[in-house]
Each structure stands twice: as C-alpha cells, then as structure tokens.
Design a protein around this nucleic acid. Structure first.
Length: 477
DNA sequence: AGCCGCTTGCA
DNA sequence: GCAAGCGGC
C-alpha cells in the first residue's frame, strides 16, 4: 500500500455530511479520507438539467468543502465535462493512492454504466468499491408482493412499504467525527467552476436545510393534508430541491417526522401520514424505474399509448412554455416555474394534464421542459408524474380523467390569490371571473384562450380511442 | 390524485 | 331553476 493511501468518497446526489453512509463508512476505514466531486456539465446538459439546478449543485459543493474541511477531509471538486471523462480521473486518483472507493448508487442508466466502469477500474487495480443503496428509503427490489412480483400499483406498494417501515424503521448515520489532520499528495485537477448564483433563493447550508425540515415536521406537517393543494398557501414542505441533490435524505425526513409527529405519522389521513405518503411515491417511482429500465429510453409504461399520434403543435407548445395559453391558472403556474425553478405540485398536475389533454402534445415534451427548468428535477419522479398525468403510466390516472383547468382553478385557488400574484395583468379582475376572465372587456393584453377545453377534451378521448377499445367491447370478448 | 351530461326531486 | 345522485368516458 502506498504511504499516500486514502479512502475516496465520491459524492454525487448525496451532498451532505449527516446521514451520508458512504462518507461515514469511509471514515471508519482507518485510512485518511478524500472526498471527490466531479462537475459534468456536458452530461448534465445531455439530461436537460436545469441551469438553476446546476448552479444549486455548484454552490452546495463549495459549501460542502468548508463543512468537510472541519472534519479534516479535503473535498476535491473537479471541473469535468462528460461522464466519459470519469474513468481517466479515477485512474489518476488510484495512482495517487486511492485505496478504497465509497459511494451511493444511482438508478439512471448512464449513471449505472459510468459506475460499472469505475468499479471495473478499481477491481483491475486490486482495489475495492463499496456502494450503498440509499437514494430510495427502501432499496429498489426490496419491496415485493407475496409472490415476489414488482408492485405496479401504488396502494399495495405503500401497504407493504409501511409494514416494512413499522418492522425495521429507518437508519440514519451520524456526522463522522473529525479525522486526524494529515497532509496528502494529490494530483492537480482542473478546479470546479463556481455557479452563476441563479439559485440564490435556496440557502446551501446543510444545517439550514435540516432546520427547515425539522420545522416543517414540527409545525406544518399536521396541516399538510388540509393545505397542500392550495398554491397560494405555503402548505408544502418546499424541501424538494434539497432532496433532489441530497442535501438532506428521505431517511432523515422520516426519522424526524416519526419524532415530531409520533402519534400521527401512522394515523390514516393525518397531515403527517399524507406527507409520508408523498415520500412513498418518491420511493415507488425509484422502484419502478429500476424494474423497468426501458423507461429511461422514453418508453411509455402502457405500451399501447405509444401508438397515439400526438398532433404536437409547436405554437401551442410555445404558448404553454411561456405561460400564454389564456387559462390563468396554467399561465400563473408556468410563470412560477420559469421564474423560480419550482412549481407547486397541484399545479404540476394541472399544467401536465393541460399540455397533454387540452393541447394534445406528447407528454415527453413536457417532461423534458420540466427537467430543463426545475431546481428539483429528478428523472424518476418527473417521469412518473408525467406518465401519471398523461394516463400512460403504471397506476396512472385513467385516460378519461381529464382535468378541467377552470374547475381546478376555482377549487384550488378560490380567490385567485395565486393567479394574481403571478399574473399582475389580472390584478383588477373580480374574484368571480379570475378563473375565466375572457367574457370581460379587457383593456390589457391578456392572451385569448388558445384552445376550447370542451372540444379539446373530446379530441383527447378520440386520441385514446385510437389505441384503446371502449370498455363495453372489451367486456364482450 | 375528475368531469360531464342526464335524471330526479324539490321550489 | 337548482342541487344532488348516477353512469360513462
């Protein structure tokens, strides 16, 4: 073993010090520890990762450097390009003394291919890798039906998932104790570039994120069920960006929820239980992604729906992207996404339904647009959500369940408070007409509706009927 | 984690 | 006129 030997912790979507199993185990290895982060903007671009998310990652890595330095762990942050550049970097690190590699597994295809190559390189050099499966709370493949099958329906999945939680709980790993100070010789790498600050609305301090999570569990989880569907309220956790890049883990969220809502988290329909359910959805989509890798290649779950020929009108798509559809709730939601990199979940459902079932545009166009704008973009959850809305997924909404954007608006933004916040040009419209202002003589430039909902709805039913038989014909077969 | 159109029963 | 209940998409 080289006298410059060290354990290497390769950080990716686990940018935290607390509950970081790879980091924790590396610190138990008896060797000095070096942390590694490789920025790969070319690969990120290939995955349409939003600039605001890229900035958030870069800012977080810089902060993490300070947090790890306090533990005497240097964080080498390299400016790379593409995943294909990773093997060469790893070779250099092995040459420098990397003896053991620690990391968390990722579930997407290119990421898994990249990690396999790295594992091979370490194996060929006679070095060991330790991969920990912690992105989902219950590792994909560990929640199976009684006959050993993959659950494709959320409710039974959740039932088994909850039973497992009651049985085993979740384990979180403490922040490692500081290591002895040591001077290592490391190669010169191209230093990671700083971000542009576009994600500045999100603090990157880990303790800040943990405190926000604690406060949500303590003060707001109880009201989650009652408030989560109203975009004008701050009823959701707003933790998605932190979960997406791993500043906090879902395991930590559950542990904290069980502490702060000890009597409620397992009580049906309590706010805490409903929030927990959202974390189960997150796991569900990770499990589905691992079980059906063709999803990564943009295939629909329900294969017949790939027979639908979507009209894909480019002008309508542009109107949707820019928030100029003439449907106030849709336009307000898209403006929230474009301006902040985040969108309330109820609105994600509304605009997704609108794109597919009112504008008749392939759900994949919307999926990609969301990825290109969201600070919390995650392939599994985004793909799962879009296929749910488009009625093409496992456990998807039935195709004939078509949201009426005006009714949704009346129900979930009753006073138009959210709409007016995002669309100041509608500030003077009376409450009663805010959801559909078009009959009013409008002195401003608010755009005319680009489609007629009731006609569009019938067209959607036709599109689905080209690939699905009406129910009564199925019954007679 | 729907909406629509039609019926019924009441004013 | 309308609210509530329903079956179909």
């Amino acid at each position: 073993m080289s006298n410059n030997a060290f354990s290497l912790v390769w950080l990716r979507n686990d940018l935290r010090v607390y509950d970081n199993q790879a980091l924790f185990e590396a610190c138990q290895s008896g060797l000095p520890v070096v942390a590694l982060f490789i920025a790969t903007p070319d690969s990120w671009q290939q995955h349409f990762m939003a600039p605001v998310k890229q900035d958030f990652i870069r800012r977080r890595v810089v902060q993490l450097q300070t947090e790890l330095a306090a533990l005497n762990i240097p964080l080498v942050a390299i400016e790379g390009s593409h995943y294909s550049a990773v093997p060469e970097l790893m070779q250099q690190l092995i040459k420098a003394g990397a003896e053991l590699l620690y990391g968390h597994t990722e579930y997407e295809l290119r990421e898994r291919a990249r990690d396999r190559k790295v594992s091979d390189i370490f194996a060929k050099a006679g070095k060991a890798c330790f991969w920990f499966d912690r992105k989902a709370v219950m590792p994909p493949g560990s929640i199976l039906s009684k006959t050993g099958g993959i659950y494709q329906i959320f409710t039974p999945f959740k039932k088994t998932w909850l039973a497992r939680l009651r049985e085993t709980g979740v384990r979180c790993f403490p922040k490692p104790k500081a290591l002895p100070e040591i001077k290592l010789q490391l190669p010169e790498f191209s230093v990671m570039q700083q971000g542009d600050g576009s994600s500045a609305a999100y603090a990157v301090d880990e303790l800040h994120a943990l405190e926000q999570m604690r406060q949500f569990c303590r003060d707001k989880a109880a009201f989650y069920q009652a408030e989560r569907d109203f975009p004008a309220l701050a009823g959701t956790s707003s933790l998605s960006a932190y979960l997406a890049i791993g500043v906090i883990s879902a395991q930590q969220c559950i542990n904290r929820l069980q502490m702060e809502a000890a009597n409620d988290w397992d009580k049906e329909k309590s706010g805490a239980a409903v929030w927990l359910s959202e974390l189960v959805w997150r796991d569900f989509y990770h499990h589905i992604l691992m079980a059906f890798p063709e999803l990564i290649k943009h295939k629909a779950f329900q294969k017949d729906t790939d027979g639908i020929v979507w009209p894909n009108d480019a002008a309508l798509f542009q109107a949707w992207c820019q928030g100029k559809t003439g449907y106030p709730i849709v336009d307000a939601a898209m403006r929230q996404l474009n301006q902040t990199g985040w969108m309330h979940n109820r609105l994600r459902m509304i605009v997704a339904s609108f794109l597919v079932k009112d504008l008749h545009i392939d759900w994949r166009w919307g999926e990609q647009y969301f990825m290109s704008k969201l600070i919390d973009g995650d392939f599994a959850a985004n793909n799962g959500g879009w296929q749910w809305a488009a009625s093409t997924g496992t456990d998807a909404a039935p195709y004939f369940r078509i949201f009426n954007p005006v009714t949704q608006s009346e129900r979930f933004d009753p006073d138009g408070v959210f709409i007016k916040r995002m669309l100041p040009e509608l500030a003077d419209i009376p409450k009663k007409q805010i959801h559909w202002p078009h009959p009013l003589p409008m002195w401003n430039e608010y755009v005319k509706p680009v489609v007629d909902h009731s006609k569009a709805r019938l067209k959607t039913l036709e599109l689905f009927h080209t690939v699905k038989k009406p129910q009564d014909e199925v019954d007679h077969e």
